[in-house]
Amino acid sequence: MAGEVGKPYTLTLAGLRELPQTSAAVKFTSAKGEQEHTYQGVLLNDVLKTAEPRFDQGKKNGQLRGFVSATGAGDYRAVFAWAEIDPAFARTQVLLAVSEDGVPFDDAAGPRLVVPQDTKGGRYVSELNQLWVGVVDPVVDGVK
């Protein structure tokens, strides 16, 4: 966990298994066709809160300027607006899954990001190895 956070940290698959778990039954389309699975894991929002994202509290709903980048195997990446994963704004439950259909993921492979509300599996990031929190202000305001 890195980026605009007060407490960057590393969390292993074994560490995720020790946290409170939730399940999600999902259906989505992938390159392999229609998929239907049940995943068990930790809510992404719960993991991110631990890192203490740094949003500008001086701005109205400053967290809405935030985003999360999830990177997995082969430098595969998906980006989420903060509001998509914050239960104060959305009714979604993005998971850091530790198992699929009751079969635990291999420790060396890492967790899978699971987005139950998506109809296509493009944001299901396998072998997740980095979460990065950022804010759009520097880009939008032309600093970078």
Rank of each mutant, 00 (worst) to 15 (best):
L131R: 04
G58D: 15
E52Q: 05
A78F: 10
Q57N: 13
G102H: 03
R77N: 06
N61Q: 11
D46N: 05
K60M: 14
Q130A: 10
F67C: 06
F28S: 00
S126T: 09
D137T: 14
D46K: 00
P138T: 10
G6V: 07
V125K: 00
V143M: 12
A90R: 13
H37R: 06
Q130Y: 04
P20Y: 00
E34I: 01
E84F: 04
R91L: 11
L19Y: 07
K60I: 14
T50I: 09
E100Y: 00
W132T: 12
D137K: 11
D137N: 13
S69E: 14
Q40D: 06
D118F: 02
D86A: 08
G3S: 08
D75H: 07
A73R: 04
E4W: 08
G33C: 00
L64A: 10
G74A: 06
V98I: 13
L113M: 13
Q93A: 15
S69K: 14
E4G: 03
G41E: 05
V115N: 00
K120W: 05
P116Y: 03
P138W: 13
Q57L: 13
W132G: 02
P87F: 07
A14T: 11
V135G: 13
G41A: 05
Y39T: 05
K49S: 02
L128H: 12
V143S: 11
T29C: 02
V143H: 11
P138G: 11
G121K: 03
T119R: 02
Q57K: 15
G3I: 07
A83I: 10
D141N: 07
A97R: 02
E100C: 08
L16N: 08
A108P: 07
K59W: 14
L44P: 06
A88D: 15
T71V: 11
A97T: 08
P8A: 01
A51T: 10
G122K: 02
D101A: 01
V115R: 00
D75A: 11
L43K: 11
D86R: 03
S30P: 01
L44N: 04
P53G: 03
P104W: 05
E52H: 02
G134L: 12
S30E: 04
R65M: 13
R77P: 02
L44D: 06
D56P: 10
A24W: 04
T38F: 01
D56V: 12
I85L: 15
L19C: 08
K32H: 01
I85F: 05
